[in-house]
Design a protein around this nucleic acid. Structure first.
Lengths: 330, 330
DNA sequence: CGCATTCGTCAAACCGGTTAAACGACTATG
DNA sequence: CATAGTCGTTTAACCGGTTTGACGAATGCG
């Protein structure tokens, strides 16, 4: 409850509201003398300007939004998200911008959320988990809500993008596995309508050439387990599997081991996104750390620039580092 | 950008702003006839009331906040947080309330955040990671910002609490380990100034009686590894270790195994909070699932009640379930 | 039939800031 | 010395809703 208002400060300092406002924002020249008086008064009364009043007057919410439509199970599995958010926040903190987080159960709710956000709640949005031909892109264009698309995206839009080069690390891992003597290398992907799953899967398919052995998972541990069971039941089973995230890789590793295989002797395993546990497992899991925090920072900066009217642009944040660990090294 | 305002709707419907407002809110009787006209006009113009204007007029932000002071590393390690948030959101969605998330680097920033939130940004806050004698409690009392304390809390406050009974599952696990023949049972806790770490540690100490073997960790994988190394280096090393979260337990398990011990034959291991991976490891990890989503829902409900002026109260959400798995069963 | 209520709507104030325009005092210029 | 230009400040309008008090018309009651 903001008991003290700008009017109180003005009275205390013996000036008008406008002067207080100018003194604080510096948008008009103010004598050092009065500025000092205003600052002293503000300090004394412990005044914090009301966000709602400011938002109304300036037509800016000073907030950006992230809407998540994933089900909680998948969110909880995701080591990317918290680190990404932390990166976003580190940029927002500089400008007193708030982050609004919405988790919605279905598409209808998601659409309502964006409409409501664009009407005074938020100045922009970050789009995660992009799909091919994502319906949210045209919606946000219609709503004219500045946005940043996180993840590769092919179609041209009026929005900025932040993406990583997921192609390179996939090829790097495949090359490494080849060098270790593997010829039958499988891939358990994420849902292929996700842009980043598709990019990784395509890189894999291209890298292994003709004999691709691809199974589509959904990033959950149980899907990792199931797809692994299928692959290992093949007559000509793979000797190495690359998973599109660490959750599936760890579940797969466990399954393989419980069915009598030794890792990495009988089966090499690599993950993606470098879960915080991966380096601590035994065997430690080969994975790709993709710098989620750096992407968060880049996305937040691009969004702030867009809100201020800058031209949209695509930034390739390349912080992919492949960590080769015991699970792929005999 | 909300181009159409309440004035446009009023003009379209041939009434005044006040009538539109009353028709929408129902706070004054309005004839069915005009109400229909107003609704039609609103529909036609696709009007969504501006949140900032409403917030200013009603002195309510229609938002609640969560401020996290943990460093990103720890947030990313935490399976509790995303599920908790999902639970919170499921309640907020019903009332068009937004969730504001702030991640701050240090205490000064955290204090600023709460001050700013209480000045028009948010109607209330959820406090996580409570510490003993937490400085935030008196601050929020001073700011008169409705809040809910998540986790056990001893001191009486004007705020509602949501907590679980962590004591029981700890005792249950200790009893189980005893039954399995373990006599030397150690505990790696979280930071002991956290209320929930302390509760678990106290339950442990009390349950094992005289010969407590307690080491304080910080919930990170590396601390789990180090404390485990210390414990295993003891002349009279423990044959079972209970960790205060799964991250430390998994790191400890890995370390023990890499130093030649077989789990659970040579060393039994149990965690807490049931990470999504725990059931999929081999050996699968014994842990306690503590219903983070249920706690999120309860906390959100209590906060909304408090904002509406209800009496604060403490709710014990007891959904702790111990999952006994391979890591403790010979 | 007259008067007190109730009902439905309107006009205007208000929330707490920002900002364009006006204005007085003072300095620079011709 | 009159006039133009700056500087610093004030006045007042505005952002887009909500809410209170007033008022005319319809209704209830005696």
């Amino acid at each position: 409850m903001s008991r003290t208002t700008i009017a109180d400060v003005a009275r205390e300092a013996g000036v008008t509201k406008a002067t207080v406002s100018h003194a604080m924002s510096g948008k008009r020249p103010i004598s050092d003398d009065t500025r000092a008086k205003v600052l002293a008064a503000a300090e004394k009364l412990n005044w914090v300007p009301s966000q709602s009043a400011r938002a109304l007057a300036t037509q800016k919410a000073n907030a950006i939004a992230v809407v998540l439509a994933r089900d909680p199970e998948v969110i909880a599995n995701d080591s990317f998200f918290p680190a990404f958010i932390a990166g976003v926040e580190s940029v927002l903190a500089e400008t007193e911008t708030a982050l609004i987080l919405q988790v919605v159960p279905d598409r209808a709710a998601e659409e309502r959320a964006y409409r409501s956000l664009s009407h005074g709640r938020a100045d922009g949005a970050l789009l995660l988990d992009l799909r091919n031909d994502d319906w949210r892109v045209p919606l946000l264009e219609e709503l004219d809500l500045p946005s940043v698309l996180v993840g590769a995206y092919e179609q041209p839009t009026r929005f900025s993008c932040v993406r990583t080069d997921d192609d390179a690390p996939v090829r790097e891992i495949i090359a490494h596995l080849r060098a270790e003597g593997h010829e039958r290398i499988a891939h358990v992907s994420g849902p292929l309508d996700y842009v980043h799953s598709r990019v990784r899967a395509d890189a894999y398919t291209d890298a292994v050439g003709g004999d691709a052995l691809l199974r589509e998972g959904d990033f959950t541990a149980s899907s990792g387990r199931e797809r692994t069971a299928e692959l290992l039941a093949l007559p000509d089973r793979p000797t190495a599997i690359l998973y599109s995230n660490d959750t599936m890789a760890i579940a797969g590793l466990s399954f393989a081991r419980s069915s009598g295989l030794s890792i990495p002797r009988d089966l090499a395993i690599a993950g993606f996104d470098d879960d915080h546990l991966s380096a601590h497992l035994s065997p430690a899991l080969t994975s790709v750390s993709s710098g989620p925090a750096a992407r968060g920072r880049a996305a937040a900066r691009l969004l702030q620039a867009d809100i201020l009217g800058a031209e949209p642009r695509t930034e390739v944040v390349d912080c992919n580092v492949v960590h080769f660990r015991e699970s792929t090294t005999r």
